[in-house]
Design a binder for these strands. Sequence first.
DNA 1: TGCCGAATTGAAGATTTCTTCAATTACTGC
DNA 2: GCAGTAATTGAAGAAATCTTCAATTCGGCA
Lengths: 118, 118
Amino acid sequence: MPVPLYQAKAEFFRMLGHPVRIRVLELLQDGPMPVRELLANIEVERSNLSQQLAVLRRSGIVTSVREADTVVYSLAGPDVAELLGAARRILTELIAGQQGLLDELRATPSVGALSRGR
Amino acid sequence: MPVPLYQAKAEFFRMLGHPVRIRVLELLQDGPMPVRELLANIEVERSNLSQQLAVLRRSGIVTSVREADTVVYSLAGPDVAELLGAARRILTELIAGQQGLLDELRATPSVGALSRGR
DNA sequence: TGCCGAATTGAAGATTTCTTCAATTACTGC
DNA sequence: GCAGTAATTGAAGAAATCTTCAATTCGGCA
């Protein structure tokens, strides 16, 4: 392995680990979008958005093209939706699990939690 | 949204963004495994592994049970493999894309790169 | 009880990532 | 060319995460 695969994976997930970057990827799922419009949909300063876009661009997960006076961003590949979908499923599951744990605690105040993590 | 969803997603990905944590999740895909064995498979100090396991536990993606003198970890749900699979697909795609870009640059030294991001 | 190995915890310093600002580039229209 | 808008960049301080160490907990066993 030239660059250990698990390290590449870690970097990849770290690249996704920022609220603004997530929102950009979600917005781009509906198709290419100019920066101006991203800016209108995400509550963040222009230069901060640029910084986050630069992170996404460096990783290669999005591409940008200049069109007249605006810059348009697109997803680089079709698998991003799948990834975000998988993440959403796990999150839903995790939240449901925590909810289940809460219910369990409420129902039987003295036992239960011990068999779950922690 | 009580905690904005995109923030939860970002935290989730950040939780995945560490080589040791990735390796733990990959190892646990084959079934529950005691810490001792994780330690044998991952090159990291014991206390550092514990720290990373604590991060995974806090997020709820793994659970731990004490069995006699060892602690055994398991994945909390079945969707993790799917997520790692999606990530691998995208990574493959990204690396292939970069390779393609390199080929393109080699073939036509003066044009090409401009239409791709940056 | 006292000791041993397994694992976790808390804390401190080192490293990395975030945010923000001012400066700069790139394009359009006058 | 010059002014004006869109977007990016570089840099610096603030904030979060990593690594490592010593101390602690927990169960098993003599």
